[in-house]
Design a protein around this nucleic acid. Structure first.
Length: 456
RNA sequence: GUGGUUGUAGCUCAGCUGGUUAGAGCGCCUGAUUGUGGUUCAGGAGGUCGCCGGUUCGAACCCGGUCUUCCACCCCA
């Protein structure tokens, strides 16, 4: 080996076993998506830069992977920007394409572009990789999969109710019990800012509030003050910091705080609607919890905000998120279309399932039986049986070379193939097969019919 | 983008204040066993000590840079 090859930072190779486990998660998610009436679409891995740039805030722009123009890109480079070392300006003159950063913005682009072919409300799901030029950490990669389901063209709050149930359905199907679906509402956050008279500092305010469980009450207040929010203002929403109890108990406290704010009252109304519907319909294994500190997410959320936390005791960032955005397609010139959607973080769900040992053994994707190769004549005899087994739905194969028995048995053992079939001259003569169970070591002489019966 | 951390055999890791031919366990290969794997025993292969440069008589070890890993911040799935 001259020089070890490698892959870029934050990317990964997947072994057969890993792919099988990932497929197990994806197929569960897909199955639930379809059960809930979502239809799949796919979009290109890269988009025109102006489709993506400016949609995720300044931080987002930095994290978008840009694709260099083909050909002699420096010929057309903006000379002034180059000589001034103005990267932002230079970038637009040497790169016009970028890898997609999430699935929501490309979806909005898709909706606008295909508006005349789409029947609204349109429910689509999309399972594809996205790329972010972020620094990798645990559960954070530069290439990862998102599994999104969104509805556009419906203002109905029943959609939010459906999404809560969808989260519950997927995590229940995966055997991941005890996840918490945290919900908040942007209108409640706006209400807070309004009540304290700092509506123009809404973003700073919510970003600080979001860190409550991380840096504590004092830390949040300190950060708010640093952003220019007065302590008198913060005092007005003091009760927010100590919010406890059930969903309804929290709502009662919020009603009190947000009484003066119309938008705040609207937010509470929406939360109550969703909660009472869920209480009526019941969730299988998940819990719906009101978390007013939840402010994550993209600048475009206008109503509900969702985030899913792994079961207690698992150290992992959120494994899903989503929300309502009233005018997502507006950025592409099509206003008045409301959308709401959620996302599943495949790679993080994988890590959580792995940590809790929740992958069923059956996901291996392995063959059921290996035929030992005894030579040309015997192989043909085996291949005839293999053909029949396969059409009966049994995955089986013949060891390709006439190697030593020990080597062939060892191969079956290493691949954890549950059955080995020995069919040499003797078996061929008597039209039998020797079936060996690799786990128990038992073996039996059986007919082809019996072989099929035992392996199907 | 900021600060820190990690890198020695396929894997997990030892390697004294810099000092001859860099070690272990597991794995791998061969044989004991020419139609029986997982156990045992005997033997064997495998390393430019992440990469580049510097200090030194001498560097896996010290210094600088770079890449990578993981962590915190920012932000986020």
């Amino acid at each position: 080996m001259a020089q070890k090859p490698s892959i870029p930072k934050g990317t990964r190779d997947f072994s057969p076993a890993e792919v099988a486990k990932r497929n197990h998660i994806i197929s569960n998610i897909r199955e639930q998506f379809e059960k809930f009436g979502f239809q799949p679409i796919e979009t290109p891995s890269f988009e025109n830069s102006d489709t993506l740039m400016g949609k995720y805030g300044e931080e987002g722009d930095r994290l978008i992977f840009k694709i260099l123009n083909s050909g002699d890109f420096l010929q057309k480079a903006n000379e002034q920007a180059y000589s001034e070392r103005d990267s932002t300006k230079l970038t637009s003159s040497i790169s016009e394409k970028a890898l997609r950063y999430d699935l929501t913005v490309p979806f909005a682009r898709y909706v606008v572009q295909h508006r005349n072919e789409i029947e609204f409300p349109f429910k689509r799901y999309q399972i594809q990789p996205v790329w972010r030029a972020d620094r990798p950490q645990k559960g954070r990669f530069r290439e990862f999969f998102q599994c999104d389901a969104d509805v556009v063209g419906s203002d109905s709050l029943w959609q939010e109710v459906e999404f809560v149930q969808l989260y519950d359905a997927v995590f229940t199907a995966l055997g991941l019990n005890g996840v918490t679906i945290k919900i908040n509402n942007r209108k409640v956050l706006s209400g807070f800012a309004e009540v304290i008279g700092e509506s123009d500092k809404l973003i700073d305010f919510t970003v600080a509030l979001d860190k409550l469980d991380k840096i504590g009450e004092d830390g949040v207040k300190k950060e708010m003050q640093e952003k220019g929010i007065s302590s008198e203002a913060i005092e007005k929403i003091q009760k927010v910091f100590g919010l406890k109890g059930t969903f309804s108990e929290k709502i009662e406290v919020l009603k009190d705080i947000l009484e003066p704010s119309e938008v705040g009252r609207k937010g509470i109304e929406e939360l109550e609607f969703i909660n009472s519907a869920i209480e009526e319909l019941k969730l299988n294994t998940a819990t719906l919890d009101l978390d007013v500190t939840l402010a994550r997410g993209l600048n475009y959320y206008t109503g509900a905000i969702f985030e899913v936390a792994a079961p207690k005791g698992v150290a992992m960032g959120s494994i899903g998120g989503g929300g309502r955005y009233d005018d997502l397609t507006g950025i592409f010139g099509m206003s008045g279309v409301s959308g709401v959607g959620i996302s599943f973080g495949l790679d993080r769900i994988y890590l959580v399932l792995e940590e809790l040992d929740l992958f069923p053994e059956t996901v291996s994707g392995n063959i059921k039986a290996l035929f030992i190769n005894f030579g040309e004549q015997e192989s043909l005899y085996c291949l005839r049986a293999i053909k029949e087994l396969r059409s009966a739905g049994v995955a089986a194969e013949l060891y390709p070379d006439e190697a030593k028995m020990k080597k062939q048995m060892n191969h079956a053992n290493k691949r954890e193939i549950p059955f080995v079939i020995l069919a040499g001259a003797e078996e061929k003569e008597s039209k039998k097969f020797t079936l060996k169970n690799m786990k128990s070591g038992e073996q039996a002489s059986v007919s082809l019919q019996e072989l099929k019966n035992r392996l199907v």
